[in-house]
Nucleic acid binder design. Sequence first.
DNA 1: TCGCTTGATGTTTTT
DNA 2: CATCAAGCGA
Length: 1038
Amino acid sequence: MAWTREFAPRWSRLLPERVFPNSSELDATNSMDKLLDGLNRAQRLAVTSPSLALQVLAPPGSGKTKTLTARVSYLITERGLQPWNIIVCTFTVKAAKEMKERIKGLVGDGLEKKLILGTFHSVARRFLVSYGNLIGIEKNFGIADMSDSKAIITRIIKRQGFSIEPGAAGARMSSLKAKSMSAEQYAITRKAAEQEFSAVYSEYEEALRTSNLLDYDDLLLRCAQLLREHPQCVSNIEAVLIDEFQDTNSVQFELMCLFSRFKKNVTIVGDPDQSIYGWRNAEIKNLERMEKRFPGTDVIHLEENYRSAGAILQSAQKVIEQDESRPSKALKPTFGIGDRPVLRKLPTADAEAKWLVSEIRRTQALSADLLKFNDFAVLLRSAAVSRHIESALGNSGIPYRMVGGTKFFDRIEVKMILDYLRIINQPDHNDALLRVINIPTRGVGDVTVKGLIDEAERKRSSLWKIVLDSVQGKTRSDTKLSAQASKGLTDLVNLVLTGQKKLTGKDDQQASPFDLVEYLIKKLELSKYLQKRYPDDYETRWANVEELKAQTADLTAAMAQGEEFVEEEVLPEIEGLEQRLINANEDALTLFLANIALSSEVQRKQDENPDETQQHVTISTIHAAKGLEWPVVFIPACYEGSIPHSRADDIDEERRLLYVGMTRAQALLYLSCPNKNSQSGETTMSHFLTQRGIGAFFETQGPKLYDDAVNELARTLRREKPDLKQLIEARSGYETPEDTHYPLDGTFPKSENARWDQGKNIDFKEGLYANKRRRTDDQSGGPMVPVAGFMPASKVTMQNPAGFSTASMSIPPKITTAASRMEELEAVQSEARLRDIDARKAAPAPIKRSKAAQGSANIMSFFGKPKVATDAAPHPATLTRTSSVPETQIVPKPPASMPRYVSNPLNDISNVSSRDPQRNAIPPTKPIQLPNFKLRTTPLTTKPTTTKRVEQDVTTAPSFSKPYTFLSSPPPPEPPSSPPDQEVIRPGGGGERIETFRPATTFHATSVTQVGNKIGTGRRLGMGRSFKPWSARGGRGG
DNA sequence: TCGCTTGATGTTTTT
DNA sequence: CATCAAGCGA
Ligand SMILES: Nc1ncnc2c1ncn2[C@@H]1O[C@H](COP(=O)(O)OP(=O)(O)OP(=O)(O)O)[C@@H](O)[C@H]1O
């Protein structure tokens, strides 16, 4: 009996069959050739599997993502599914972008855009925008980002006089929400002790409601609710595909089920070993739950690894195996064994950074430039440890880009403008209003604000309404306003109302988001405000404002292109269901703001031929590196407390994190551990790397890179192997062809004193390190390689002007875009920094390093590339979608030469190109179909006022051509002759070396952009208090 | 009551 | 470097 049950539905669990390939047919079908090309047998089976529910479980580098991509294409081209009936969910925006690109390559331009593809959150948002009204969600709901949430929580706790910590409360609420436990439910089951928390939870939800906001969890929850109550919203969905399934939480799982409710066609790929989001309530259990929920789920395992050299896999395996609860699985290399990974000990974090740079230089040189900057990544447990590395890279002129860390849109000066936009878009956004109600200061102080808030609370109304009423005198406000407060609020109200009017104005009057930003900047006298508020910092901050302008301009231009933006926003039409129409300007603003909230990282697709100058080393958190790969990977700071992180509560997850990091490497992997961290605490190497026997899997120093090693490296990377003669030349011409500058035991070069060497964590390594230890003597202390960037530099990687462009780029004569403006401003800064350096040389007091910089981001990527309108076929009407894609359509060939390897996984991040003239020149706007939309033909042109302002600033600063000269000349910070020992920390000096300058291309997460390699180093380091030698501040130190 | 300065404080990972 | 509390002058 059981079997009938089981058997019967079996067939119904198969895909409707157009082609039902068996294995012999697999390679036969012609149109499928391209699809299956470059896939192994298991992958092909997965791609063409007739099962409705399919799990592809496989270790890193086995081509899961590739397989998923191919399956999407297969469903479209071979199974005849319409792309708009397919939902593809990824975990990050970056992954979504990349997948879209890959699918585009397989199914041809256009189709991929019609997929419902994005992160869970963005897909959920799309549904809520279209159908939210069905469950009482107002159309213009905003998204509460983390700072919104935190502000709300803090406010509640403060008002109630509770003692719980806002951060913890937030995390707990999120955790409850991720499990669909509402405030009401929680209130019922709560323990007495949790009363406070329960109250905060309820009030938080209430606050979100009043502000018409959804937080991240709400997006998922409410979407699930929508689909539960109105399943017809997904009645068209024929297939659902999920990437990185191991990182889904239970609401996401439910969403997946709901999406696939009708056809029950689900493909997921994942790897339990790579589950690193448990802290965000991801549940690996979902794998089993899926098997239960979709009886007959097929599981396919992929085994071969196509990414990494064998030795890397072995070491990674050795790490992950330490988790004993894990079923044993092997990683099967398809490449040669390669060089063994390196596990390197160094004296300090600073030395570690310098060593890292020297290894980049060395490997580049010895491989005769087989490796470009793009091929290197530095992966970190936490962004905080990036500083040494950033400055070391910067000091040697290596361009880099930082992913993660403080985000562009979180910078206060940017956030401030955004908050105003949000208020204009949605005045009831209490917290946005609260944040800027007195910024710039307009005479509305704490007391007034408090009074207004209380009143709002009492009347259960929004802050905006109270303010509006009291200003317009409709209500005799309960709060007495001082004359100045009253005036200030009136100004604010007028500002917002005018903004709204502009936004909704009719036809010609209608303002684009870009216009609005300009309007705000002008009306708020932002420049003046920033100057006053941040005198030392003004240039940077203003540059950020300019960047925001540029971003908005990009958006505006993209929308002027028309359809794409609407297309990505709208869902397919479903009979009998009304969908909210999208097209007006207001929606553009809403979408713009939403995308900012949903993009921890935004990136732009890089042009096909990234020219050399865009090359950069990537610095990223391990989390953000998931799913990516690089030829050479460094994982510094492998000590207890960093990885596993001291605050982590799941050690296994930390181990997996290390595993994920290690498996990003294709050819070379370096782990390293400083004996002292930057807080000058002594460190113990991560116990993941000190297990018995693991030492055998690592080398203690960087690879020697003789020619056969380089050749193998080339093979692993599927690149052409360098000429032998070149290799020999490179080697003989290189000063330090071996990684021997730093003693292998982690002591300082030439220093006999090894007092930190005491005991505990060396015992087992003793054997390993013992015989090599005295090698130290050979080190006559040759010049540190990192400095090479400053040298005349004929030897080292001179192919790469990029490394030096930081220093030598010149500012293009007369461009008036925000971006170029910014470059000038940055130049001013470097000038300032120079003065700083001089000052410090004069008075060499130890200076504390200050924290890293900002980045910028490009929101544009959400709207597609602002390409010049080409001969593109006229788009079918986007709002009413008929099946505009003939099934017979033959899939266009992919770009003839799909490179066999993906040389740079992060290509898509780049933007540098985006700042190119091409981009700066606003694409010729072709008339759009959207009736309501006002065209801007020259959005990027700086307004005269701005220009003047900036020019003034520039002229008050000394000529800025100087810094560049400086940067490309011999290293100033320390006498070039100074032996390496100089960097030894003087006991009691408290000091690390003084930073010389803040490297050029710091990009943060979000950051994708332009500030690019072109800028003469914008960000400052070591500025902080010490910066401003000429200012009144000086005296303190002595 | 507001605006500004000063000093003390603190830092995982991200949709 | 950002945030926050405390304190002072207007
Ligand atoms: N059959 C194959 N032949 C050659 N190369 C392949 C094959 N399958 C995948 N690759 C390559 O292997 C690399 C890893 O692929 P992919 O990113 O899809 O792996 P993954 O399983 O998703 O990895 P991760 O779990 O780390 O995200 C890519 O460079 C991809 O092009």
